[in-house]
């Protein structure tokens, strides 16, 4: 019995860590999709970029882990601004098919570009020594790096929630998601708001890509390889919310890990089946508005 309990604890813990990485990467996608109605399939490209920047800084220039992580998020956010100004904004309010074609094209360009710049090899992420090994919580020890992931994910959820609920910027975003025309007519500069939100979402993806590099390996085909996971989190969570993707990521991360554990033969299939059932039940997602 002790063995079973230990296994459940272990599955829950590792599923949680996986969920946090999914959440960090997907939350930006959810907000930008809800806010601008833009189907940005290329969101994973920003996560990949964050991963490349972070591993590059650490491995090549010996930048410490936390500094490299922060720089990865900032660099990704900065790169996303010209992209938004030059490419994305032309398609706001346009046909969804055009948006999908544009962003799929961006994904393929990112695959070729990353292969050209960094080569086809996986970028290795060596956790800093203070996060290597295990942390002992008294009753049981857990891998330090994954514990750190969970901690970061938890802190970010709180920070984002406070930011959205308690700041002026957050209020503007909520207003624009609720009713874009009304927000514009009360004098909110939505164009600037879109740009900043897009940069924030991309920066978060970069942070998630860097933090999660140990779990979702940084390779040129990153944006394509993990696309399904990001899309599921957003679809299940519902567009435009901060809470939605959080619970969806928890659900996907833990359910995926648990089903693979209990029924390894069918496990990889279960989250797709569950996603279908959930979406049939609530097509707008768990926290999306009908």
């Amino acid at each position: 019995m002790g063995g079973t309990l230990a296994a459940i604890l272990s599955i829950g813990f590792h599923g949680l860590a996986f969920a946090m990485v999914l959440y960090l990467i997907s939350v930006g996608l959810s907000v930008t999709m809800g806010l601008m109605g833009f189907v940005n399939l290329a969101h994973g490209v920003f996560a990949m970029l964050g991963g490349y920047v972070m591993t590059g800084l650490m491995n090549r220039y010996g930048v410490p882990f936390l500094a490299a992580l922060a720089l990865a998020a900032i660099a990704t956010a900065l790169v996303s601004i010209p992209l938004e100004r030059l490419l994305y904004r032309r398609f706001y309010g346009g046909e969804e098919l055009d948006q999908v074609l544009l962003t799929m094209g961006l994904i393929f360009m990112s695959v070729a570009g990353a292969t050209y710049l960094w080569g086809p090899l996986t970028q290795h992420m060596e956790p800093p020594h203070w996060l290597a090994g295990q942390v002992d919580l008294g009753f049981r020890s857990f891998p330090a790096y994954r514990s750190f992931l969970i901690l970061c994910g938890g802190l970010l959820v709180i920070a984002l929630w406070l930011g959205l609920e308690r700041t002026r910027f957050g209020a503007q975003i909520r207003a624009a998601v609720d009713n874009l025309r009304m927000a514009q007519s009360v004098g909110i500069n939505t164009s600037r708001l879109f740009m900043l939100t897009f940069a924030l979402g991309s920066g978060l993806a970069g942070l998630g890509g860097g933090l999660g590099a140990d779990l979702l390996a940084i390779t040129p085909s990153y944006a394509l390889q993990y696309l399904v996971y990001f899309i599921i989190v957003v679809a299940v969570g519902g567009l435009g919310s901060i809470r939605g993707p959080f619970f969806a990521a928890l659900f996907i991360g833990i359910a995926d890990t648990a089903f693979k554990y209990w029924l390894p033969g069918l496990g990889a299939f279960f989250i797709y089946a569950l996603t279908m059932v959930l979406l049939l039940w609530r097509p707008q997602g768990l926290f999306g508005r009908a």
Binding site: A7, I11, K260, Y261, G265
Partner: peptide, 20 residues
Amino acid sequence: SVRYPMQNPDFVPFVQRVKD
């Protein structure tokens, strides 16, 4: 004997089975 998908991101659930 267990078979996992060809491109699997996290092997923890499968390795946990071995450990058990």
